[in-house]
Design a protein around this nucleic acid. Sequence first.
DNA 1: TAAATAGTGTCTCTTAGACAATATTAT
DNA 2: ATAATATTGTCTAAGAGACACTATTTA
Lengths: 219, 219
Amino acid sequence: MKAAGARPARVQVTVDVVIFTIRDGALNLLLVRRGIEPFRGRWAMPGGFILEGESLEQAALRELREETGVAEVYIEQLYTFGDPGRDPRGRIITVAYYALIAMDRALVRAGTDAAEARWWPVAELPKRLAFDHARIIEHAVERLRAKIEYTTVGFQLLPQEFSLSELQDVYEAIAGRPLDKRNFRRRIELLDVLVPLERWRRGGASRPARLYRFRAGSF
Amino acid sequence: MKAAGARPARVQVTVDVVIFTIRDGALNLLLVRRGIEPFRGRWAMPGGFILEGESLEQAALRELREETGVAEVYIEQLYTFGDPGRDPRGRIITVAYYALIAMDRALVRAGTDAAEARWWPVAELPKRLAFDHARIIEHAVERLRAKIEYTTVGFQLLPQEFSLSELQDVYEAIAGRPLDKRNFRRRIELLDVLVPLERWRRGGASRPARLYRFRAGSF
DNA sequence: TAAATAGTGTCTCTTAGACAATATTAT
DNA sequence: ATAATATTGTCTAAGAGACACTATTTA
């Protein structure tokens, strides 16, 4: 490792985005396979250099849009990683964001550079990710688990209309454990953010579930 | 404002540190008066460019040490501010940290460049700070207020030995409201992090207070 | 003994967890 | 009628706020 010098470091800044969704009842995130060095062939989070005149969040939203086609999403700055040596190309600092999208809104497209892009259940991520992305993802999952307990971010993972059972599935996927149905419904009730609809989800041979929508400031 | 270009932005990265302490029963933070442009004469948080081979946290610790002479402190990354236009010198992104130190450990020295440095009660900050530092400080105070509720960060603002009344003073200074003495002591008791000492604080003409020290992982 | 601060316990309300039976639909 | 999922309430334990008196020291 290089010793600390007395001159300002010449740095570049990227943003990387942990894009979460719920798929098949499990928490998933989007990774792209790198088509170029370094870490060619490894899976990495969507991200890239910030452009002229672009705010950090705008850059994160741009990366997210390029990979999923989704524009209006919940996004939040996570942490900034800047250890020397985290990127073999030089001193590159990355501002990490995480975003939550409903599966039905995400149109994942094979990324630019003919690189693959796919969803991965967080419990089954590839062994070796590019850069320090494994650590960043750990932070993101931890943060999401913490925030779902005392905020309403969880609702961002659902389509506009959803049943209470679907909502519970999301919470269970993130908590990683089953929740008691009656306690869960009481808790949601107390949040006072659901609007009952005169619509029902009718699936197999069972009682249909009432649908709700999320009511909040603007989103 | 400049339109977003298609090329990576040429950026520089600084760290800025909100250094908190308790002085005269009030939450204070350290500001330095800028000796050079831009914002010459305005008050600003200690900070500066990161150096070669230095991690972000190392840079923050260095700035803190340069301003207060304190080395071992509680420090935590706060948020990264990178809007274009936040610094008139160009595209400068700052990674903000906040630190907590006990007043008895801080030896604030007149900063380099013959610039002034002094503590300010957060309720009486100068009207116009340099850059977007007012906003950064708002974030820091908010974060500290939130974290003191569910962590033990508050203990970092006290000397090694302290009485329960002194501890309560710290909590009240941060919460900004008086706390019930019995409820407060029960709450601290439940944390199970205080070691009672066979020493007493004897002040004026009143009953001496038992001293305690903070017991935790390493610090 | 007066002034000043330290130290201490109970009641109540709210919150969160554990826990099971009935309701409604399609087949 | 059966299978499948939705919907609903109570008891209990723990945590948090409101609240007032006694103890110990110095001047």
